[in-house]
């Protein structure tokens, strides 16, 4: 299950701009509340943590509970003072980590 995240970051911005970042990752987000046909509870398996860093320092992060919809979507802001790289991390309940990076230039 190689989930490929979709991320929208503007290609460039002026120094000091506040930009909007949108991210979406494919994931079932099994809540642990559902039951299968035999009435057994389907075990919980969700992304439990999302974070965004810019040039190594934290911009935004989110602790996620099962009440977040499948294919978790996040939209948030970031202030850019310099060119650099945004690093996005999703942590799954099973311990796997999905990472992605996006660069931004200063115009």
């Amino acid at each position: 299950m190689a989930a490929k995240p979709r991320i929208k970051v503007p290609k460039k911005a002026s120094a000091g701009d506040i930009i909007t970042i949108k991210t979406l990752i494919s994931h079932k987000m099994e809540s642990g509340q559902r039951k299968d046909k035999e009435g057994k509870v389907i075990p919980r398996k969700i992304i439990n943590k999302f974070s965004c860093e810019f040039n190594g320092s934290s911009v935004f992060s989110c602790d996620i509970d099962p009440a977040i919809s499948a294919n978790p979507y996040f939209e948030f802001r970031a202030k850019v003072n310099e060119a650099g790289t945004f690093k996005f991390t999703w942590v799954d309940d099973d311990g796997s980590v999905i990472e992605a990076e996006k660069e931004i230039a200063i115009s």
Binding site: S57, S58, V59, F60, D63, Y73, F76, R77, K79
Partner: peptide
Amino acid sequence: FHFSPASGEAKASTR
């Protein structure tokens, strides 16, 4: 949601 001064604006959305 956890914000930081680098967020610029404390605004976020999800589903």
